[in-house]
Design a protein around this nucleic acid. Sequence first.
DNA 1: CGGTGAACCTGGCCGC
DNA 2: TGCGGCCAGGTTCACC
Length: 286
Amino acid sequence: MPELPEVEVVRRGLERWVAHRTVADAEVLHPRAVRRHLTGADDFAHRLKGHRIGTPSRRGKYLWLPLEDTGQSVLAHLGMSGQLLVQPHEAPAEKHLRVRVRFADDLGTELRFVDQRTFGGLSLHDTTPGGLPDVIAHIARDPLDPLFDDELFVQALRRRRTTVKRALLDQSLISGVGNIYADEALWRARLHYDRPTPALTRPRVLELLGHARDVMNAALSVGGTSFDSLYVNVNGESGYFDRSLDAYGREGLPCGRCGTAIRRRAWMNRSSYFCPRCQRAPRVSS
DNA sequence: CGGTGAACCTGGCCGC
DNA sequence: TGCGGCCAGGTTCACC
């Protein structure tokens, strides 16, 4: 599932293969792939036509392609299964091909948005003076952003009356962390997912943040995480960080620190993986 | 308005 | 073989 490292890999691929190319035309093959565009998919496609793409940017799991001289950007979210692929024109259409963007040049490749579960999508928005599409103004900076404010994060997290994993997944507090890297950061920090945030000390929160950064940087350095063929980077290559995960998806396997079997617990309509010995539950568990 | 939890969606997989 | 049910989970939104 694409989280921050995977999305960053895609962004780099787009920077290499798509930036500075002019859109010849766009074709929307599934209406759900274009979001929040009240005037419809055809209008969306029409508005891309003839514009040159600037340098792709990313915040958390969102990435966007500025359309030069329009004040607008194409915002993309990959959801759970979205892929942005650069393919030769003649490559056969993927089973879940949703959007196709052709360019006005002779490079012979096109950009494709492919998405099985249709949780992802593209949309078009005004770019704010800060360079951010207006609809993601509420998304916090991510921990790999040089301007991420660690102290601000500590204070904001401790003010929340919630539990630590919920806070890690709250994109208005910190962005880019999904279920996988939340479990990995918590395992590294030896914190149980249900620990109340107000009880965490400043050093504990800073340590957790550091682990989140470390694990995402490690994933980024090997090209993202992939568990199946759903996620591939912009050139269609899978990452292989899943070999390095310590908690996520390891139910019943020994904890790399103490050997205790990793457990899986149903949590918020999904799963939490943790070591019952290294990550003790709070005394009063919700 | 902060916290909570359901809905959205499809295909792979498992058990019967 | 076929089919029902479960599971994956980021974001949005309704509700309290």
